[in-house]
């Protein structure tokens, strides 16, 4: 079964979704991400959905779930690069993704996470070293 790679960048995790998410893939991504956050003690998760052109309510819920789950594990989720059509669809579906941070592109998303956790960087860095 396909898996979506999760990359580690310092205290943050980076996920780039390059394919259209079907339900099982989304579910496995959710499980993998939560595992990964737990294992690495990451402070932030960055999900790039700039290549996703189709969303449904399930996908919207998964994004919301990921955010809530990582929040429990003390990590913030940033969704970046959402396309206009996708944003309109989610709003029309009544999913405003409360609790999810958003940014225009990966670069801005990284800046956002750094601004948020800049002061904890060293701490997170230590954790990361321990995990290796």
């Amino acid at each position: 079964m396909d898996r979506i790679p999760i990359l580690r960048m310092g205290a943050f995790l980076l996920v780039t979704i390059q394919v259209d998410l079907y339900d099982r893939l989304a579910l496995s991504l959710e499980a993998d991400l939560v595992d990964m956050v737990h294992k690495t003690g990451a402070r932030g998760v960055l999900i790039d959905i700039s290549s996703v052109s189709i969303v449904d309510s399930f996908m919207g819920r998964i994004l919301g779930n990921i955010a809530s789950m990582t929040r429990v594990l003390d990590a913030e989720t940033v969704v970046v690069g959402m396309q206009p059509a996708v944003a309109i669809t989610l709003i029309e579906l009544g999913l405003s993704l409360k609790g999810v941070h958003t940014a225009l592109n990966v670069e801005r998303g990284m800046t956002l996470l750094n601004d948020k956790f800049g002061q904890d960087d060293e701490l997170a860095g230590d954790d990361a070293d321990d995990a290796e």
Binding site: V79, M82, P84, A87, I91, E92, S96, T102, A103, L104
Partner: peptide
């Protein structure tokens, strides 16, 4: 409110 929410989803 819809328009504002959609802009927020885009990251602005």
């Amino acid at each position: 409110i819809k328009t504002v929410s959609a802009t927020r989803l885009m990251g602005a």
